[in-house]
Amino acid sequence: MCVVGAGLAGAALAWRLAGARSADVEICLAVDSPDPRDASRASGGLVRAFEIDPWHRGNAERSLAELLSDPLLRKWAGYRRAGSTYILDTGRPGHRAALAAARAMSGVRVAGAADLAADGWRGLPEHAFAVCEPDAGYLSPHDLRTALITDFAARRGATLLGPVAGLERTRSGGPWRVRTVGDGPRECDVVVLATGAWTPALLRRHGWETAELTTKAIQYTQVRVAGRRPTPFVDETSGLYGRPDEDGVMLLGVPTESWGVDPDRLHAEPGLTDRAVRLAAERLPELLPGDRLRTVVAADCYGERAGLALEPVAAAGGGMFTFSAGSGGSAKTALAASAQAAHDLLRG
């Protein structure tokens, strides 16, 4: 089996496969130089158990539980416990159902608009509720994937390859031939494309249908702030999200609407930063935004399902899968999703 792509998703999957493999299975991981525009390097790394989508929430819960129970994973990931505030707009039907699910979750507290006002929030609609998680926090997806790759390479039956230069099938139903820079061709029965935002273009180059996959730009800005900094948060009533960074700095952002982007041709949208800073001043008046230090722009792969899952590439004729549609949330779900994907691959 060959996993192509060593972002957090690909590194976690290869690591799982190498740790659970059968004696007759060889696992290869094709690694390129980390791109500063890939989601694993650019991600703010928020991790929490709560998500609106039930399937996504299950993966997020299992991932956080594993992270909190494993000191080595926490060390690899540089995990920092910081809490989480996820503000729901219960005027939306899906949010009402998610709030009901949150009330049944352990380790979370549901707060109303009055409670949020005591925490420094202003201007929220009366029907806003927040899911507060004291054990949530953030990690470095880049540091975690680097540690997983290092541990993967040390395992028996695991092979680290260079960047992929070609991917082809010599005959119908036969093995895949993966050509890598510096390593030559290698035949594989199974290839998993964990290539993130580059996946749709890669599939199109081979003539395979990609209707269910697309890309989207992600942007946030590091802003120097004074005053009261909140816990990491998502405010669904306005779109604003953020988390504390180093002393006196916040990461602030709002969702982009830049779909179908080329991950090699990204550019910052100043208007998004203006909107994020304005919303932060309105919703968190005790937080005083100052200088804008750096804007980070990246892209991720989005699919019909809100998160990572192993999906067959039917047009390829078998033995080809994607594990790419992180949809901007791989940091929260990669541990659980990679465990499930490895289980499915090793058991046929």
Rank of each mutant, 00 (worst) to 15 (best):
D344A: 14
D264Q: 11
G137T: 05
L251Y: 10
A6M: 08
S69H: 13
S330Y: 02
R228D: 03
V25I: 07
S63Y: 07
S327F: 11
D264K: 03
D262P: 03
E66F: 07
L67V: 05
G328K: 09
A339N: 00
E257P: 00
P263Y: 07
K332R: 15
L67K: 09
P134R: 13
T150D: 13
T146I: 00
A9Q: 04
G162Y: 13
A197D: 03
P175K: 12
A77S: 11
R109P: 00
A197F: 10
W176V: 02
H95L: 07
A337Y: 06
V249A: 02
S43C: 09
A113C: 14
T170P: 06
T295Y: 13
R21N: 01
P244H: 01
E61R: 15
P289A: 04
V191N: 01
G182F: 12
D344F: 05
G326M: 04
P232K: 08
D274F: 13
S172R: 15
L310W: 07
L139R: 05
A197T: 02
T295R: 10
G307I: 02
R228E: 10
L29S: 04
L308V: 03
G5M: 05
L193M: 13
A11D: 02
A211N: 05
V192P: 03
V225I: 10
W176A: 04
A299V: 11
M250Q: 09
D247K: 15
E286T: 05
Y302W: 15
A12V: 01
D35R: 15
S69Q: 14
A325R: 06
L73R: 15
R205Y: 01
G182H: 09
G317L: 10
R109M: 13
K75C: 02
R122W: 11
A9K: 01
G112D: 14
A165K: 12
Q340R: 15
V223R: 04
L251V: 08
E246K: 14
R292Y: 04
I149Q: 13
D119K: 07
A158L: 06
V190H: 01
D189P: 03
G162F: 13
G348M: 03
D262V: 02
D89S: 13
T170F: 08
R122M: 11
A14R: 05
S22Y: 11
P200K: 10
A20T: 13
V297M: 09
L272V: 02
L68F: 12
P200S: 08
A117W: 12
R37V: 12
L252W: 09
F323G: 02
V313G: 02
L252H: 09
A147H: 08
A342H: 07
M1W: 08
R243V: 04
D344L: 14
E126M: 06
L335K: 01
P185H: 08
T90W: 10
E61P: 00
A276I: 05
G227I: 00
G174E: 00
R179G: 00
R37T: 14
H142C: 00
